[in-house]
Design a protein around this nucleic acid. Structure first.
Length: 333
DNA sequence: AACTCGGGGGA
DNA sequence: TCCCCAGAGTT
């Protein structure tokens, strides 16, 4: 990992934002590309948000990218380009929560604060056999208190790294390597054959299904796209125009006809074709999309925003649109 | 406290 | 499918 042993708070910060809820393997390439594109916080601050989102495309949780860009500008404008050097001050930065503030403070500035991530929670829950759910205020506080008691004043950075590495490689979520674990004789969960039941999480909310028709409107080498605004998913990314519906009817042609006539001003619309259902599972939603190709020559809607198809790949799109556009050979990647 | 925010990979 | 991932912000 290129950020291991790193002392530059900018690089530590960048790596930690990328690694939030993200596996090292998945984040690695993104880290390299960000460092290459933005060697310093000043470079990142001078970029446009569209550019940052494009580089973040495919990594998910795009508020991380927006907050990353916001905080880079914040650092340059209000901190003279220098990261604050304590846990408490780092915590004030947008996108920097308790874990990330502790990681930066302990790695870069040797402050004795525990960086409690999923790995640390798993290790502690097993060694001490903590049955309390970790995703409640009370439970979470217990893990924080315990981790901070264990953190050595002299080498907090090494300790935090070690705890996470140990959780990621030995004390894994499934099939932990207890046979070679040096804590075997101390681990309450191992003694009681309870490693598989720890840590305890409260039930997650179930994900809901949503259904959309997305319109592929292309003319003279241009295609209609729009930027996503508001509070819904994928804020700031781009997409083909689409319309949400309650569900898909048995008669797809008829439903498309109705939806399209509600969506566009034009009276006579000609459809070329529609696709099978594209599906994407998110944390709390399952997205279903049918893509509809429409003959553009009768479309008179003035609010549609057309961009040259050769420039499509400069915009950040959600995964499900990437898949469609790749199938149409409109983007390569 | 509960909800929301992506996408990938392993079982 | 379900679960988890070097979590954080909003309501």
């Amino acid at each position: 990992m290129p950020w291991k042993g790193e002392k530059d708070p900018y690089r530590i910060w960048l790596s930690e934002i990328i690694l939030q809820q993200t596996r090292v393997q998945q984040g690695l390439g993104y880290y390299e590309r960000f460092i290459s594109a933005y060697p310093s916080v000043h470079d990142l601050a001078q970029a446009s948000e569209d550019e940052v989102l494009k580089l973040w495309q495919g990594l998910g949780y795009y508020s991380r990218a927006r907050n990353l860009h916001f905080t880079a500008k914040d650092i340059v404008q209000n901190y003279e380009g220098k990261f604050p050097q304590s846990y408490a001050k780092l915590l004030k930065l947008k996108g920097v929560g308790k874990y990330t503030a502790a990681a930066i403070a302990s790695f870069a500035f040797d402050e004795a604060v525990a960086a409690v991530d999923g790995n640390v929670i798993r290790v502690l829950s097993r060694i001490y056999q903590i049955q309390e759910p970790f995703d409640t205020a009370d439970g979470r506080k217990q893990f924080d208190v315990l981790a901070n008691e264990l953190t050595p004043k002299n080498w907090p950075g090494i300790f935090n790294q070690a705890m996470m590495d140990f959780g990621a490689t030995v004390c894994t979520p499934k099939k932990p390597l207890c046979e070679l674990c040096p804590f075997q004789k101390d681990c309450e969960a191992f003694k009681n054959n309870a490693t598989n039941d720890l840590p305890v999480r409260k039930n997650r909310v179930q994900s809901k299904s949503r259904f959309f028709f997305a319109f592929h409107i292309e003319k003279n080498g241009s295609i209609a796209i729009e930027q996503r605004k508001g509070k819904d998913i994928w804020q700031g990314l781009y997409q083909l125009p689409w319309q949400e519906v309650k569900g898909f009817d048995g008669n797809m042609e008829k439903q498309i006809d109705e939806v399209a006539h509600g969506y566009f001003q034009s009276e006579d619309l000609n459809f070329y074709s529609f696709t099978e259902v594209f599906k994407q599972q998110l944390s709390h939603q399952k997205i279903h999309v049918v893509f509809v190709e429409i003959d553009a020559k009768n479309i008179t809607d003035t609010q549609l925003n057309f961009i040259a198809t050769r420039n499509l790949s400069t915009f950040a799109f959600p995964k499900i649109f990437i898949l469609y556009l790749q199938g149409k050979k409109l983007i390569l990647e």
